[in-house]
Every structure is written in structure tokens, then in C-alpha cells.
Computed example of a mutant assay.
Amino acid sequence: MEIFVNDQKLESAFENEKNLGEVFDAVGRWVESNGKFLLSCLVDGEEFQAGTMRDSSIAQANKMEFYVGEELDILISSLHELDSYVDKVGTTLLGRDSLTEKETKELTDGMYWIKTLLESAGKLLKLKYDQIKPMGTGSTVEEIMEALQSKAGKLDGTTAIEEFLEYLRDMKLFVMDLVARASVLDLDLPILREILDTFIKAVPALKESFVKVNESYQSGKDEVATHLLTQSVSQINVLLTSFITLRQKLPGMDFSKIQIAERTFEEKTNDLNDTLASVALALEEKDIIRAGDIIEYEIPAVLDELLPYLEKVKEQADSLAV
């Protein structure tokens, strides 16, 4: 069997792989190790279907073609496609009590595609899915993906579908955040400066939005609170991701040299991440009072403490960009 990557024949031989699924996984690992991402795979001209092709012998196929993303904008485009796909699945399942055999197969393959795309995105963005908890439940992205994959083929009855939709909603929240993070990586210096300036100016409004999140939780409007919280946290994630891009655009950026009262910038960003993680933990434990206190009081306090560091980051970036 011949293997092609972006229309180039792969000369390396696969010795241990016996079926198409093993070849797919091996190429996927190679793609990730090179900091790229897998977009699609064709087997003799047909889209690779994990449900039906995975266990097929290599001898049954003549050619596997892999298409790998070389540019960040391809990843961003794929993430937008993923976002639309999640919406489509949610709309299709809403109000249903069962799926046809064809729909079940398509959904199962779709969940596998999501997993593959997220793995590639995670490698590029250096994300640890076993530690990221989208707001909504206490499940990590890794746990959400595992649940979606395991449940996709067993949607018999409204209860099963509603449970699947709960996980899908959490995935939607994460995908929205992921699109924002990925988009920042492709920005140029002027726009990165603008993000930094805008965030500094928007901190008072952002603090107020966290107060509204707590008010919504305390009044029983959990869905509204989750939506507001996701939007607010997404703004913070965009900022944090912009620091990665700044360091790539300006190799001289050294965040370890930014200190105030013997506390480094990296320590302060870790404080912010830890505080956000504590919100997720409190929500997981259904401790709304504790989560509300963190959201309304601790997060704004950490943001206030971070502001002077952001000013210093801006100063250092400006000096290096001259």
C-alpha cells in the first residue's frame, strides 16, 4: 500500500502496522511530532471512516492519502468548520429520541474527526486537555471527548440524547474558546499591541462582567451565568495566548525579567490560571456560593494585581519592536 502526505509519496516503511487504523494513528503521531495538524485522510479516494475502515487490513487498500495543515490559517479554518459542525449536530439531535443507523455511523465518525482535529490543535497550541475544564461541568476536555465518542453510537431514547447534548454543549464552549486562542497566534505586532491596550482599558468592564456572572448564578440563571463566564474567561485566554505570540514575534521578550515586589509576571499569570481553575473545581462540586465568591471577588483582585505587569509587558514589547 502506498502512503501519500500532501500528494508526496512517503518513502518510510511501516513495519508493525497491520491495519488501516494503525497506519492512521502512526501518521497522526508523526504529524503531531512535527508541530503540524492532520486535516483529512482518504483511502483509495474515499474519506477514512474510523467505524468501518479502522480494522481493515493494509492489504485491502492500494493507497492512503493524508492531508496535513502547514499553515495556521488552515487550522483556524478547520476550527471554524468544527464549530459549525457542533452546532449542526446539536440542532439535529434536539427533540429527537433516536437516530437511524446511517446517522449513528456518521455521528460516530464525526466524533472521531473532532478528536483528531483537537489533538492536532492541542499540539500546536500546547494545550493539556486533561487539565482544561470548560465552564459548565467539572469535566475536562479529554473527559468530554471520551464521553462524546463512547455515547455517540448508543443514542437510544431521549435521556441518552439529552446527556450527549450536555457534553456537546460543553464542547461547544471549549471550541469557541479554542477558535479565539488560535486566531491570536496569527496576528501581527500592531494588533497584538492593540489587544494588550484594549485589555488594560477593559479590565473595569471585565471585572463588572464577573460580578454579573455571580449575580446570575445566585439568582438561579445558570445558563446565563455559564454563557457570561465563558465570554469573560475567553477574553482572558486570548490575552494569555497573545503572550505566546509576542514571544514568537519578539525573541528578545523575557517575561522572567518582569517583576514587581519580587513577584514575577509568570507567577502572576499562574495565579490567574489557578484562580480560574478553582472556579471550575467549585462548579464541579456544585458549590455555587464558593464559585460565586471566587468569581466576584478573587478574579477581579487578581486582575487588578496583574495590571501593572501588563504595563511592563507593553513597555518591553515596545522597546524591542523599535
Rank of each mutant, 00 (worst) to 15 (best):
G21C: 08
H227A: 09
T140G: 04
T275F: 08
G220E: 08
Q235L: 14
E11Q: 07
I76A: 00
D271E: 11
D130A: 02
N214K: 12
G35M: 06
V203W: 13
F199W: 15
Q60D: 14
D271S: 01
V89H: 01
L229G: 02
N270A: 09
P134N: 00
E305V: 00
V86F: 14
V213I: 08
G51M: 10
I236H: 03
S234T: 13
L72P: 15
D188C: 04
E146W: 07
S84T: 02
A277V: 04
T100R: 06
K102N: 12
A280C: 08
D287T: 00
E15P: 06
G90Y: 10
S242F: 12
L276D: 03
N6A: 01
I288L: 12
Q259F: 05
H227T: 12
K151D: 15
S56M: 13
G35N: 04
L240A: 00
D83H: 10
V86M: 06
Q316W: 14
E70M: 10
V43L: 14
E2R: 15
L250D: 09
V224L: 13
I76H: 03
Y67D: 09
E296N: 06
P204K: 00
S209M: 10
K312F: 12
F24R: 05
M145E: 08
A61Y: 13
R169H: 12
E267H: 02
N273L: 15
K88L: 12
I288F: 14
E106D: 08
F199L: 09
G35H: 04
A280V: 03
T137W: 12
F37D: 08
F14W: 13
F4P: 14
M135T: 05
T230D: 14
F255R: 00
